[in-house]
């Protein structure tokens, strides 16, 4: 019996059978059955589903009146492990709380840990769902409150084609 077992490659055959099973199922049933059997997606054409808690790029929020929610408590600047946030505090006419005259975010060093969002007591910043963050220039990673392509309130130009751009990033409940 053991000689027969040694001669006949049954162990290899059982592996081949498993491979054949999956090959056959995918070959015959792909695109025909309604049941989703694929693991991979055709990415740029098919949007990827992202979990609600996904940690993407840092983004500042405005309230219903279009006013910046940030009140410069510097909690995010202090907790940031890689010191990517710099805030300058200022005053603005007709606003009781302090107003950020400068809110700089250096994305090239950001590690997307979401400690800043967690420390914020005013819900004035979020990590949005933008994940296509590659850029052609290093300057594109330096994001601030002003500038043509460097806006903390919008998705950056490199990420405009990601699925997050289909939602309105200016709305306050945008997460």
């Amino acid at each position: 019996m053991s000689i027969l077992k040694k001669l006949l490659p049954l162990d290899i055959a059982s592996g081949m059978k498993l491979t054949g099973k999956y090959f056959g199922r995918n070959f015959l049933q792909a695109n025909r059955s309604k049941k989703h059997i694929h693991i991979t997606v055709e990415y740029p054409e098919t949007p990827i589903s992202i979990a609600p808690r996904f940690r993407g790029r840092l983004q500042m929020l405005r309230d219903e009146q279009g006013e910046i929610k940030c009140v410069c408590c510097l909690a995010c600047e202090k907790i940031c492990p890689t010191q990517v946030i710099t805030i300058s505090k200022g005053k603005k006419e007709g606003r009781k709380t302090p107003f950020p005259t400068r809110y700089d975010f250096e994305m090239e060093r950001c590690i997307f840990c979401e400690f800043c969002v967690e420390s914020c007591g005013f819900d004035s910043i979020i990590l949005n769902h933008q994940f296509e963050l590659a850029a052609y220039n290093r300057e594109d990673f330096s994001i601030g409150m002003e500038g043509q392509f460097q806006d903390m309130f919008r998705v950056s130009p490199v990420g405009q084609h990601s699925i997050s751009s289909t939602k309105n990033p200016d709305s306050p409940d945008y997460t």
Partner: peptide
């Protein structure tokens, strides 16, 4: 110190 934060007017970008 690599710092492009001051480059709001895009001078460094234009040069590069």
């Amino acid at each position: 110190e690599i710092d492009f934060r001051e480059d709001r007017s895009g001078v460094l970008m234009r040069l590069s």
